[in-house]
Simulated scan of single mutants.
Amino acid sequence: MAFFEQRKNGWRAQIRRKGMPSISRTFDLLADAQVWAREVERELQRGNAAVLRDDAGKTTLAQVAERYAVTVLPGKRAHSGKTYLQAAASRFGPLFLSAIRAVDVAAWRDELLAEGLSAQSVIHHLNALSGLFSFAEKELSITLPVGNPVRGIRKPAKPRGRDRRLTAGELDYLLRAARAARARIGGLPQVITLAVESSMRLGELLGLEWSRVDLARRTAHLVDTKNGESRTVALSSAAVAALQSLPLRIDGRVFGWAASDSFEKTWTRCKASARKLYEADCTAQGVKPDPAFLADLRFHDLRHEATSRLFEKGLGVMEVASMTGHKSLSMLKRYTHIEAEKLAQKLG
């Protein structure tokens, strides 16, 4: 039976059951105390006596994060969720699980948005925190009296998927700029070509090893992928030619960039050089440069371009999915933007 008592520091709720230890907690609002009491009594009716141990009131989020990092993270990609997990632990680490409320999580969400983080990044942060609570429930058998607090809040609206494709001449100028920088940065033209020809992500490209590339069969096996599953990508003739033009490295890797961050600087410089080449040609031809040319292009947009080209070549959904690694049509659709003019030609 639940008993409620108003005290100076809030409303105290106490659950008493014959033959069982009593459990109590204090809340600012009576409504919160009543919700907690109902949840505890519901668990007791289900035969979950562990709820009376109040593990959620004795375990901090930092302790859960520490266990999670040891048992779960090693099976994930190094960058997958690690940053978001650390941010969640930094914000709520000292607090007991039972002390973290939905209103606290909502306040953190608003703080992240105010700091300028994108909606998608904030969603990743919230998912990481939610994952810790789920881990505590399922793996550590810790009963959360009011459930996972992250599930009760509104998440930011996801941004619309980018539909940026290469416009006429952009790829040519990128490759010209990349070849001009070849003396200083080996492999830049090849990584751009492979991105457009294979639809591989930047991290997958930079993680390529020669031991997993079969030029005779025209395949590249990817082990470390975003969705955690390995896949084998078919290589076009252009992709094979790009790989054949690369020198073999002593460490066995195809490309020398250590991480995506270091490559992004190279990519930014390449775009700037390509833009200068374009403007110089426009001046020589007496044409006004298009301000949108290469302006908002991201390296990941080359994956959009590659995926759309695969469909335009007539490949089926499953064939494209085997190349891109997408698990569902809805996910694949975000990256597929087939030009209407080319569709009209197919219609006759």
Rank of each mutant, 00 (worst) to 15 (best):
Ala89Ser: 13
Ala89Leu: 01
Ser90Trp: 01
Ser90Leu: 13
Ser90Glu: 15
Arg91Thr: 14
Arg91Met: 08
Arg91Cys: 04
Gly93Gln: 10
Gly93Asp: 05
Pro94His: 03
Pro94Ser: 00
Pro94Cys: 03
Pro94Thr: 00
Pro94Met: 04
Pro94Arg: 06
Leu95Cys: 13
Phe96Glu: 10
Phe96Asp: 10
Leu97Cys: 07
Ile100Lys: 07
Arg101Ile: 07
Ala102Leu: 01
Val103His: 08
Asp104Lys: 02
Asp104Ile: 08
Val105Asn: 02
Val105Leu: 05
Ala106Tyr: 06
Ala106Cys: 11
Ala106Ile: 07
Ala107Trp: 02
Ala107Ile: 04
Ala107Cys: 12
Asp110His: 08
Asp110Glu: 11
Asp110Pro: 05
Asp110Leu: 03
Glu111Thr: 11
Glu111Leu: 10
Leu113Glu: 01
Ala114Leu: 03
Gly116Trp: 00
Ser118Leu: 02
Ser118Ala: 15
Ser118Asp: 05
Ala119Gln: 07
Gln120His: 14
Gln120Phe: 08
Val122Trp: 02
Val122Tyr: 03
Ile123Val: 13
His125Pro: 06
His125Phe: 09
Leu126Pro: 03
Leu126Ile: 08
Asn127Asp: 11
Ala128Pro: 08
Ala128Asn: 09
Ser130Thr: 13
Gly131Cys: 06
Gly131Trp: 01
Leu132Asn: 04
Leu132Pro: 12
Leu132Ala: 11
Phe133Cys: 12
Phe133His: 06
Phe133Val: 08
Phe133Ile: 05
Phe133Asp: 10
Ser134Gln: 09
Ser134Cys: 06
Ser134Gly: 12
Phe135Leu: 07
Ala136Arg: 03
Ala136Val: 00
Glu137Cys: 10
Glu137Phe: 04
Glu137Thr: 15
Lys138Arg: 15
Glu139Leu: 00
Leu140Asp: 09
Ser141Tyr: 12
Ser141Leu: 14
Ile142Glu: 10
Thr143Ala: 14
Thr143Glu: 14
Thr143His: 11
Thr143Trp: 07
Leu144Cys: 11
Pro145Val: 14
Pro145Ala: 14
Val146Phe: 02
Gly147Pro: 07
Gly147Cys: 06
Gly147Arg: 07
Asn148Val: 00
Pro149Val: 03
Val150Ile: 06
Val150Phe: 12
Arg151Leu: 13
Arg151His: 06
Arg151Tyr: 00
Lys155Glu: 09
Pro156Gly: 08
Pro156Glu: 02
Ala157Asp: 14
Lys158Trp: 01
Pro159Gly: 08
Pro159Val: 03
Pro159Ser: 11
Arg160Phe: 01
Arg160Trp: 06
Arg160Met: 09
Gly161Trp: 00
Arg162Lys: 01
Arg162Ser: 04
Arg162Cys: 06
Asp163Lys: 03
Arg165Phe: 06
Arg165Ile: 02
Thr167His: 13
Thr167Gln: 15
Glu170Tyr: 00
Glu170Gln: 08
Glu170Leu: 08
